[in-house]
Design a protein around this nucleic acid. Sequence first.
DNA 1: AATCTTTTCGGAAACGTTTCCCGAATCCAA
DNA 2: TTGGATTCGGGAAACGTTTCCGAAAAGATT
Lengths: 341, 341
Amino acid sequence: MNKKKITIEDVAAAAGVGIATVSRAINNTEGISAKTKAKVLQAIEELGFVPNTSAQSLKVRHTNQIALAVPDIRNAFIPEVAWAVEQAAKHSGYRVVQINTLGNARAELETIRDVKKLHVDGLIMLPLAYPKTLVDLINKSNVPISVINYGKKLDPDVKADIVSLSFQEGRLVMEHLINIGRTKIAYAGAPKDIIEERFFAYEQSLRQVDTSRVFIGDDFTIQTGWQAADYFYSLKDMPDAVYASNDMIAIGLVNRFKELGVRVPEDIAVVGIDNNPWTTLTSPQISSVSIMGNEVARLATELLLQRIRDQRVGAYERVQFDPRLIVRESSVARTHNATYS
Amino acid sequence: MNKKKITIEDVAAAAGVGIATVSRAINNTEGISAKTKAKVLQAIEELGFVPNTSAQSLKVRHTNQIALAVPDIRNAFIPEVAWAVEQAAKHSGYRVVQINTLGNARAELETIRDVKKLHVDGLIMLPLAYPKTLVDLINKSNVPISVINYGKKLDPDVKADIVSLSFQEGRLVMEHLINIGRTKIAYAGAPKDIIEERFFAYEQSLRQVDTSRVFIGDDFTIQTGWQAADYFYSLKDMPDAVYASNDMIAIGLVNRFKELGVRVPEDIAVVGIDNNPWTTLTSPQISSVSIMGNEVARLATELLLQRIRDQRVGAYERVQFDPRLIVRESSVARTHNATYS
DNA sequence: AATCTTTTCGGAAACGTTTCCCGAATCCAA
DNA sequence: TTGGATTCGGGAAACGTTTCCGAAAAGATT
């Protein structure tokens, strides 16, 4: 209907006040009486006036937006993070614009240029690597940045708040498995483990590793889990526990074991990593360790928002998030089983 | 380092030209010689100048952004859509800002107000319902809108391009099941099926429905599938096929059937809906019908972008997307089985 | 060489806000 | 009442661009 864009000036005219007054009413800054404010507000309502964000941003030099740069929307970890960031941001009145780098390193550089263009107030990024060029760009950009580090060790003096995963998840599952009395622990993973630490933890928890007990499949899928199960089943000396480097593999393991008539956890315990919701949908439910994506994301955005608001600069935070083991049915103490079997 | 914001004016000074010329260089509009353009570009490079998007938008009256309003980021269907929209938009040089309505109807209204504020050039929405107030708001907003309709029938004269799912998925699975010679077909679903059409299709494909063969669980989860399997198993006259109203339920069904020693598909065929990636990870792999979220999303954004570019108004598109059945291991013709059993 | 086209460039006016600064109105106390 | 202190409201400048319009420069045509 209303073809013409209506501006603050129209409102001013309609309400019989000056444009400055209208502005005061909108942002409820002080220096305006309740009466005129009401009058203005009503005029706004009648005209269906909506302030132009571009003009506002241009004037006030910030946009109330933060950018979230993610490598690939389809990785399991990402939606969780995106969700949490969105929540935390919205809660503080910020909008988030997502920038998809597709895991492309060049795009990751491009990102911070975009960030300047858009004049967003801050940036949260999950880089998959830290080439020098990226670090440089970060350091000389003067936009507040939080990085969520779920990859490799990074340059210690990046000028950004960093919340990283502590890579203790492997240790956690090994300790757990040992605690519940398992002695023949196997490992099922994939090559070029993004998080090699997961395998290192396996090695370090054992006096010596029996290489016949480690199975390395092609990828992080259920199929790999199946293959691993078949393999372990074929061993004359079957393991009594398996540490799966992610939940997909763990799920494949318990499915296949069930088919083979191997009882989980009585005959063999299984624990995975990621705390994928699916772990609760299998039978038995699978123990897993949560990487705390939600909390990590929330903290990262809170740090960022804080930095934005306080105009803080320097004194960059460096926090690690420890993963948490969630014990479910697929791994229980041996003594328990004895009672039942 | 560079504390002060540097503007087009600084560039002009540095390059020894006027500010209009700089603008021409940036947007490579014509009316500028190659030589001076190079000069300007270099100055830009040296100063690290980045144009201010807010100022640009204010002037040109558009933002090169489209908004995507989604009910809940965690629904299976949504990430697929979000991804496709993002891809299509980026390909045309548009950025997408996601607005999360949390499925909240009020927030859905608020959305279109936000859209005006932000001055995005268009909006793609997936409303879960179409209250009159929403339709009104859509109709009198003069922002191009595409709606992806995966819910109920909607007001026929919404002023927006609409691409909807055709709700033929139920018919598809029933025809398939009948074609492969199943005669005792059961239904497993959840109450208040978002897409009631799925159940209607079941009723309509049968001369008469044997109510003992329909199981309505609590929700769309695997657990419901388990319960359904138990229930069907308990029947004296077991069905020879079950039509699950979504893949989660289907997965639960085949898992539980396997445990019960019921063979799929020999004893009983199972087919689900949604073409959830997980259907290929079970054994047997589960037949399912794809709702074509990807294609739907891509078309919706293409329609939108087109409308934006051509400033087209009126002549709203109405397209339906037909789902597609993907036959996997969980449903094969009876004659086949005979050979094997 | 002189005029006429055409191309290239710069000045200045917008775009729709916020905010500074100052004048007007209101309030309070004596 | 009157004056001074205080609150309220308006005009105008600024934010950083794009673009219109006219002027200058360059090229083309005799």
